[in-house]
Computed example of a mutant assay.
Amino acid sequence: MIFNPIAALVAALSTFLVGFIWYNPKVFGTAWMTETGMTEEKAKKGNMAKIFGLTFILSVIMSFFLPLIVIHQSGVLQIVNGDATNPAYMAYMEVVGENHRSFGHGALHGLMTGVMLILPAVAINGLFEQKSWKYILITGGYWVVSLTLMGAIICGWK
């Protein structure tokens, strides 16, 4: 099976683990708060149920799309309009099978997605918002690490 919904949900949850570590005051949390103007008082005023709930939903959306990027077999299945009985797809799977379905390969494609797609998007927004490069690298770095882990989980967990 190409798509594993359990792996996608775990991948979505992994963004919380990365965030817990990444934004810890002993890692980048204090620097991020300084760069954004966030204070402990302001943070406590946020609706945490809403913030964490929407964060999970948005992470699920990302993790449900990510297989199209990190699993080669998904692309081939798209070419045949999702018809797994198509002779061309069946021939491809006979030759290639589960090749490149590993945690390492998924991590590579997740890393590439983070560096080549998400980091530039974060940087563009940061430039127009006149944010510092420190902010851009902290925020973009979080997504690079998160997508690397998400890609590993989604591609490697069959």
Rank of each mutant, 00 (worst) to 15 (best):
E94I: 01
H109P: 00
G29H: 02
K158A: 07
S63M: 12
N86L: 03
L68M: 10
F3N: 10
G19K: 11
M150K: 11
K158N: 12
A31K: 09
E98G: 11
I153T: 01
A121L: 08
S102H: 03
G110H: 00
F16D: 08
K50Y: 11
F20R: 11
N125C: 11
V122W: 09
M90I: 12
S59V: 05
A121C: 03
I124V: 15
N47A: 05
M116F: 12
N86A: 14
I118G: 02
I21F: 12
T15V: 10
M1H: 13
G141E: 04
L147S: 05
E98T: 12
A123Y: 09
L111W: 07
L149M: 04
F28M: 06
P87K: 04
Y23V: 00
T139H: 12
E94Q: 05
M1T: 15
N24V: 04
V60I: 13
G140A: 07
V96S: 05
V10S: 09
G53F: 07
A7R: 01
Q73T: 13
V18Q: 07
L68I: 06
I124P: 07
M93Y: 15
Y135L: 14
F128N: 10
F20L: 11
V122A: 05
H109I: 01
T34R: 15
K44I: 00
L9K: 02
S74T: 12
E41K: 13
E94Y: 00
S132A: 11
I124S: 04
I124R: 07
T148N: 01
L58G: 15
A123S: 13
A8I: 04
L17R: 02
H72M: 08
A123M: 15
G114K: 02
Q73M: 02
A31V: 09
V10W: 07
Y142V: 04
G110Y: 00
N81Q: 13
A11R: 00
G140E: 05
T85A: 13
